[in-house]
Design a protein around this nucleic acid. Structure first.
Lengths: 212, 212
DNA sequence: ATGTACTGAATAACCATTCATTCATTTTTA
DNA sequence: TAAAAATGAATGAATGGTTATTCAGTACAT
């Protein structure tokens, strides 16, 4: 080994690594203190770096927050796409996989849920937050509608309004997130999943098996 | 008329009126700017009053915000109780009335929804917000469970997990609020109501009529 | 050596809260 | 009843604390 080995973490870290580190620190702080009480001092301290670091890498606080939300959105999408790929290809299994993915700890842990709601809470007054929040479910909704159509055909269920059905399912999925965040009596991710699966069994009784 | 007529508004009454006026101004500002950007200057100006007025009537900003959330909670509860009283007493009608009440403009207009989500967004870090948010649905949930039990008996439906069912319904109700708040393509209160009624028709097919 | 990541003190803006003062109403007194 | 005193509501300028942003300087990498 020579005198200067390449250190695993250079003191001068790669730009991308730093940005990600700061986004993580932001998530941490928003979960702990809320969006309103999160200051750049909190973020930079949590990241173990200096005061001016956020402005150096993101130019402004606003920018950091936008990118934080965007990061969350990207993770969310990746997560359900991965779940679909891992699952069997019949519509019932795909549907189960898609909806179960909403309650995996990767995306639905307490911290991240708190951050989602923090941004939704400001969505009305911040167009960027609103836009990214909409984007979170645009592809999800399309895939969901396709799966519902296939499942209804396969099971020869009586015709349903698929768009409305999809809206309802997504609404329940989000509402269960709220329940995890707010609930007093320790309503957990696994409880949310149960409720959702019960719902699917009710709509698609011929496919009960897939939703157990 | 003598020189000193009895004033229409007594001082004590005025105090309550003022508090209400300031809470309304707070709702206005939170809906417009978000919770984080709402300052006491915004609130007092919107109320057409002076700088120090909020501290005079509420002692602190924190207090004003707590009372604002509490006001919202009280209105919400009043609204669904009134809806139940107005409706027929059979369980299906009651259930329909309860769930429709969530989408009346009294409680689910854009401003108030924005404020609900603003508080939920901070609920994780503010125990008071969390507590009041929980309280919003405690009675609602109990009534809902009773109605579900009665309806299942009346309709001789196969047994269901009523607690889970109620959780699911409430979750969908809240999620539809989010959809109204965030949606790009003008998802309205009436659309939310449709989705919810479709859901109820699916679970309780023998009572379709009540959910049209 | 030179550029680049990073630092942290300084700055300017903002904001909740305080409080001396003004204005209005009610109560007391004669 | 009328004037005076007391009480209460509201004002808005001043204060002290906080915070995003800037930038001149430091230290590391190649």
């Amino acid at each position: 080994m020579t005198a200067q080995t390449k250190p695993l973490i250079t003191r001068r870290a790669a730009k991308i690594v730093r940005r990600r580190q700061l986004i993580d620190a932001a998530i941490e702080s928003i979960a702990k203190r809320g969006l309103g009480d999160t200051t750049l001092a909190h973020v930079s301290t949590a990241a173990g770096l200096s005061q001016g670091i956020v402005n150096l890498h993101f130019a402004s606080k606003e920018n950091l927050l936008n990118e934080t939300l965007n990061q969350l959105r990207a993770e969310y999408e990746q997560n359900w796409r991965a779940a679909l790929e891992k699952s069997a290809s019949d519509p019932a299994s795909q549907l189960a996989a898609l909806l179960r993915s909403d309650y995996q700890k990767t995306v639905a842990d307490n911290k991240k849920l708190a951050v989602w709601f923090a941004f939704w809470g400001e969505a009305k007054s911040r167009p960027t937050y609103k836009k990214i929040s909409q984007e979170r479910v645009t592809d999800y909704r399309e895939i969901l509608k396709e799966l519902l159509a296939r499942l209804i055909e396969e099971g020869k269920y009586s015709p349903m309004d698929i768009a409305e059905l999809a809206q309802g399912i997504i609404a329940m999925a989000d509402g269960l997130w709220l329940n995890i965040l707010i609930s007093a009596n320790g309503f957990k991710r696994s409880d949310a999943e149960k409720v959702m699966m019960q719902y699917l069994r009710q709509i698609f009784p011929k496919h009960k098996q897939a939703f157990l």
